[in-house]
Design a protein around this nucleic acid. Structure first.
Length: 462
RNA sequence: UCCGGCUUAGCUCAGCGGUAGAGCAAUCGGCUGUUAACCGAUUGGUCGCCUGUUCGAAUCAGGCAGCCGGAGCCA
């Protein structure tokens, strides 16, 4: 019994093969005089296998009806192709038709707009561009795990549902089994969450960081890699309500170790994808972002610029450039500032650190100057903020003071503060938006096009 | 959430007051070791929804919805 071989594997062959079995979907068919060319794609790689279907095949009449999108199994000999565009082709001995795609198959043999393909997100991975994107997504995921695993980081699964409404990273989705049309009430008229599934309010996580810190303070170096949710009404090309985030956390590490890790990880991931998805990246370089490969090589081979927030402000002031938001110490860096630094001034990724404490989260370590914290953001050309991280405040008294300063409730963080009560150590970590790295590596400009089924405000199809 | 733009055939768009057009796709036929082949023919739309102005609205006005881009929030 002949076993199926994937096209990606066949195309790596050094020589012709007497008998092969391939299975896939018809991309296009062209008739010649005594035979038909059928291009098969099985998703294993960008390239198709050209199949020669001669008119002496018993079901040739049916083969002539094969339309784009139809599914087939083909046996035959893989020979060197006479045509110039492919090394091999398969001369069919049998073609079994699984299913003919009717004429209303939505993917035509032509270029479609990304907006249209988004409306058929369930079929778009069958197109060249999206097939490539989601092969890259898979390889990039693997690269993340491989990078951390090779460095002795442990993979920690932090909860998706959280009872804490104070993870400090934005609006959260509520999770409840109560009947929202008729919820139980307490005597004073409020919703009685003691009767809800968890006995209290529950939400989808916006970050696993606080949990991750606990595990770093036990296992040493850890990372999380999982789905994250934000109920922000953000309508941009860089935000989604559901996205995947990578959050490493290192015990016995400071802000400089953190920056080293971030830079090493980005370079490692790019290298891995360039090595494993060369054809797919070539497509992006040709059709999506001309110059992409040069950009990626530049990122891999150049050191990331590293400056302090104060230096960044000075650079922008000295540039003479007219910014809409005037650079002054104390302002948050706007999109235009990030783009200026990464794209115009340094022309490569930049890591900015030591931000004013007022514009950063409570858990970031207070610097000796008393007015900045050991936070760092990695800004990349075209994307803006790819990574946000910090050295964490490990001093219990300073941390409690920061919680008070920011008007937060200490009682909500008792379990978190335990890590500072018992064997507290310097530690640091960061958060990386997985889809943002996908955009960086593929050149695809919209986050909706690097997630299989994107969830954004007013949109939850499929 | 704010600002701007768009919504006409399956797709991409033109038409911008007088009752709808192109290219591509699809279908049919022809030609051909072809390369998202080529040539010919055919099919295909209550012009996003609601209200109004007008003798007459795809076209003008108002409202709504959806989509796109930018900004904010951030990953």
């Amino acid at each position: 019994m002949l076993k199926r071989t994937k096209i990606a594997q066949l195309l790596q062959s050094e020589q012709t093969i007497k008998q092969v079995l391939i299975k896939g979907w018809v991309r296009t068919r062209r008739d010649a005089k005594d035979f038909s060319f059928v291009e098969i794609n099985d998703g294993s790689c960008l390239k198709n296998m050209q199949v020669i279907a001669r008119n002496d095949l018993s079901n040739y009449d049916d083969i002539k009806k094969l339309t784009t999108g139809s599914s087939v199994a083909v046996t035959g000999e893989m020979i060197l192709s006479q045509g110039g565009n492919q090394k091999f082709e398969v001369v069919a001995e049998t073609i079994e038709i699984y299913s003919l795609a009717p004429e209303d198959y939505p993917l035509q043999k032509k270029k479609h707009s990304d907006e249209y393909l988004r409306t058929i997100a369930h079929l778009r991975p069958r197109s060249n561009k999206y097939g490539a994107a989601f092969r890259v997504r898979s390889e990039l995921s693997y690269a993340i795990h491989k990078f951390f695993n090779e460095r002795g980081f442990r993979y920690v699964h932090t909860p998706i549902i959280t009872g804490s409404d104070c993870e400090g990273a934005g609006e959260m989705f509520q999770v409840t089994t109560l009947d929202i049309n008729n919820p139980p009430r307490t005597p004073d008229g409020k919703v009685d969450y003691s009767q809800d599934f968890f006995g209290k309010e529950a939400r989808l996580t916006v970050s696993g960081q606080l949990n991750g810190e606990m595990y770093a303070c036990a296992l040493g170096d850890i990372y999380t890699f999982g789905p994250t949710f934000r109920a922000e009404n953000s309508n941009t090309t860089r935000h989604a309500a559901e996205f995947w985030m990578i959050e490493p956390e290192m015990a016995f590490a400071d802000i400089h170790d953190d920056m080293d890790l971030a830079e090493d990880m980005v370079k490692y991931c790019i290298r891995h994808v360039m090595n494993t998805c060369a054809d797919d990246l070539a497509l992006f370089d040709k059709f999506v972002e001309p110059g992409l490969l040069d950009k990626l090589n530049n990122i891999m081979n150049s050191g990331f610029a590293r400056i302090t927030y104060t230096e960044a402000i000075d650079i922008m002031k000295a540039s003479g450039k007219a910014f809409e938001y005037k650079p002054e110490f104390g302002i948050d860096l706007q999109t235009e500032h990030e783009r200026f630094l990464a794209e115009e001034h340094f022309k490569r990724p930049v890591i900015v650190r030591d931000y004013p404490k007022e514009i950063k989260a409570f858990y970031m370590r207070l610097n000796d100057d008393g007015r900045t914290v050991a936070a760092m953001d990695v800004l990349v050309p075209g994307i803006g903020e790819l990574i946000g991280g910090s050295q964490r405040e490990e001093r219990l008294d300073v941390l409690i003071k920061r919680i008070e300063e920011m008007g937060m409730t200490e009682a909500d963080y008792e379990w978190y503060l335990d890590s500072r009560r018992y064997g507290s150590v310097p530690h640091a970590g960061f958060g990386l938006g997985f889809e943002r790295m996908m955009m960086l590596i593929t050149g695809i400009g919209n986050i909706r096009d690097v997630i299989p089924f994107p969830r954004t405000p007013k949109s939850i199809n499929f």
